[in-house]
Design a protein around this nucleic acid. Structure first.
Lengths: 113, 113
DNA sequence: CCAATATACAACCGATTGGTTGTACGTTGT
DNA sequence: ACAACGTACAACCAATCGGTTGTATATTGG
């Protein structure tokens, strides 16, 4: 695994490790939302929400599109899938362990016969 | 989604948002490793690695088992799967958006006929 | 034209993070 | 018995995080 991939993984998991950001992500996956419309949903300053959006954007989990004075944020499902595939990879590592255990059991059965 | 679930999600994503911890998780998913054996693999102090293991343990991504003076850590694939299912849920949110777009297209086609 | 709106960004703050060293304590091998 | 080993945990530190307020800039509606 390359250094770039690890940086990307750091950014993705970090972005997801905050409930406000996960909630923003759910909203923008549902459809486009301007930053100020998003900000209105939370009991924190506009600037705070804007920072959360920026973290999600840097991780690639959402993209922004200008429309007049508004900035419309939209969730990127491909980035979500890339995280899912990292976890699938981890599960594969675990499957290898089970396969090795099964192999040992099989060898043991052979011996006993 | 309950507050407890959100706390758990915070802990899980935070635990995964560090490359050393992801690497430790890969190793312990492959099989049991003592904390000191894990510590030997990284260019940082034993205490630092021990803290990383503790973060993974608190998130439920690994469990420890005492064996004499050693503490054997083992990865928990169920916790990995629970993260994967959170992402699947996000992807479902996105699918709803697509479904609504398709619906609008269908309505538009009806009008034009 | 200009007041209101939407955004961006810097500076600041307390809490948390990821690392260190040092100390303490149970377990083990000789 | 005791030195070496494996672990736990506290105290500390610099850097980052999640939040704030304040300021600047571009766009819009009346």
């Amino acid at each position: 695994m390359s250094e770039r991939d690890e940086d990307q993984a750091d950014a993705l998991f970090h972005a997801l490790a905050d409930r406000t950001r996960r909630d923003i992500l759910r909203r923008v996956l549902r459809g486009e939302h301007s930053v100020s419309v998003l900000a209105a949903k939370y009991e924190m300053s506009f600037a705070a929400v804007q920072k959360h959006v920026a973290v999600l954007e840097r991780a690639g989990l959402l993209t922004k599109r200008r429309s007049g004075r508004e900035q419309l944020a939209s969730g990127d499902v491909e980035a979500v899938r890339s995280v899912a595939s990292m976890l699938a990879e981890l599960e594969q590592v675990w499957r290898g362990r089970i396969a090795r255990i099964d192999e040992l059991i099989a060898l043991d059965n052979d011996k006993q016969q």
